[in-house]
C-alpha cells in the first residue's frame, strides 16, 4: 500500500533459504549443536534410567509366566495388600507431620530479614549437608529404651517405665519427617516470598485482621508451594528405604523394605519387579496428576 520510493534495489532473484541443520540461526544455536549438547544427557537417561526400569517392568509381566499373576498376587494376598496400605498411610502421615512442622517455619522465614533469616535458612539446609545414615543412627540412639527421649518422658512424668520407641512406626514417621521436612519448607517459602507485601496491607485496609488475612490471602496464594512440597514429600516417603529398614519393625514392612526382602532373601525377581511396578505406577500417576506443580524452580523454593 505504501510506495517504496527510496529504495532502488532491483528485483533480485532471491531464493528463500531454509535454515540448515548445521547452521546456527543467528544468535540461536544450530540444531546440530543442541543435539550434540543434549546427547550425553539423553543417552545416560535412556540407558541408565528408562531402559532398566522398563525392562524390570517387562519381567514383572513375563516371568514366571506371561500375564499379570504377580500383580494379582500383590492385591489378593492380604499380607501384601496390607503392606501397600501401610505404606500409603505412612507416607500420608509423614507428609502431614512435615507440613505441620514446615509451614510455620516457612511463614517465619518469609517475615524475617537479615541474620535471623540466614540462621533459620542455615538450620533448614543443614540436613542437606549431613548424612542420612548418620541422622538415622542418631535417631536410633535417641529412641533407645534408655535413650534421651525415654529419659525425658520419664523425667517429666508422662511415663513411668521406658517404652518401646525404636522399631515402631512412630519412630519411622518421626525420623522420616526429620529428613524430608526441609523439602517442604523450601517450596512453601518460595511461594510465600513471592507474595507482595502490599497484598497484606491491602487486605488490612479492606478490613481483614491478621487471621482473616492469613486464611483468605496468604494461604491461597501459598497453595501452589504447599501442594508442591506436600506431593514431593509424599512421593519421597512412598519409596523411602533407609529409615524403614533401619528404624522400622520387621513385622511392619513398607513396600520398599518388602522389595528388598523379596529380592535379597527370596530372590523372587519377578515379584519384586511387580512391586517396583506398583510403586512406579503410583508415583507416575501422582506426578502426572500434579504435573503442573512439578516446576523445578518451585520445588527448590525458587532460589538456589
Amino acid at each position: 500500500m505504501q510506495k517504496i520510493s527510496a529504495s532502488s534495489a532491483p528485483d533480485l532473484a532471491v531464493h528463500p533459504q531454509p535454515v540448515r541443520f548445521f547452521e546456527a540461526s543467528g544468535r540461536k544455536l544450530s540444531q546440530a549443536a543442541i543435539v550434540f549438547l543434549m546427547l550425553p544427557f539423553f543417552a545416560l537417561i535412556f540407558v541408565a534410567f528408562l531402559y532398566p526400569l522398563l525392562s524390570l517392568l517387562l519381567i514383572s509381566v513375563q516371568e514366571p509366566e506371561p500375564g499379570i499373576t504377580n500383580y494379582v498376587r500383590i492385591f489378593e494376598n492380604p499380607i501384601y495388600a496390607t503392606v501397600l496400605l501401610r505404606t500409603l498411610r505412612l507416607a500420608l502421615l509423614v507428609s502431614i507431620l512435615s507440613l505441620m512442622l514446615a509451614l510455620p517455619v516457612a511463614l517465619l522465614m518469609a517475615r524475617s530479614r537479615g541474620p535471623k533469616l540466614a540462621f533459620i535458612t542455615a538450620c533448614i539446609l543443614l540436613p542437606f549437608w549431613s548424612s542420612v545414615l548418620v541422622r538415622t543412627a542418631a535417631w536410633s540412639v535417641l529412641l533407645q529404651r534408655n535413650g534421651l527421649i525415654n529419659q525425658g518422658l520419664q523425667a517429666v512424668g508422662i511415663i513411668d517405665a521406658p517404652v518401646k520407641l525404636l522399631y515402631t512406626q512412630g519412630a519411622v514417621i518421626v525420623a522420616m519427617s526429620h529428613v524430608l521436612m526441609p523439602f517442604m519448607v523450601l517450596p512453601i517459602y518460595g511461594a510465600l516470598r513471592n507474595i507482595p507485601v502490599e497484598l497484606g496491607r491491602a487486605a488490612a485496609i479492606c478490613g481483614a485482621g491478621p487471621n482473616r488475612s492469613f486464611w483468605e490471602v496468604t494461604l491461597p496464594l501459598a497453595m501452589p508451594g504447599i501442594v508442591a512440597g506436600f506431593i514431593l514429600v509424599f512421593l519421597s516417603s512412598l519409596g523411602y528405604f533407609i529409615t524403614p529398614a533401619l528404624l522400622g519393625s520387621p513385622q511392619e514392612m513398607t513396600i520398599s523394605t518388602l522389595i528388598s526382602q523379596q529380592l535379597r532373601e527370596f530372590l523372587d525377581w519377578p515379584f519384586a519387579a511387580a512391586l517396583v511396578g506398583v510403586l512406579s505406577l503410583l508415583v507416575t500417576a501422582i506426578t502426572l496428576a500434579f504435573s503442573r506443580v512439578f516446576r523445578f524452580d518451585r520445588m527448590m523454593g525458587a532460589h538456589e
Binding site: 532398566p52 522389595i259 517396583v276
Partner: peptide, 27 residues
C-alpha cells in the same frame, strides 16, 4: 527437545530410589 528434557529430568527425582536401584541392579 527441551520439553522432553525437562520431562525426563524430574524422573530421577520422583521415581523412588528403591525402584531405580532394583532396576539398575538387574541391568
Amino acid at each position: 527437545l527441551g520439553s522432553l528434557f525437562q520431562a525426563l529430568l524430574i524422573g530421577p527425582i520422583v521415581v523412588p530410589h528403591v525402584a531405580l536401584a532394583v532396576a539398575l541392579y538387574l541391568f
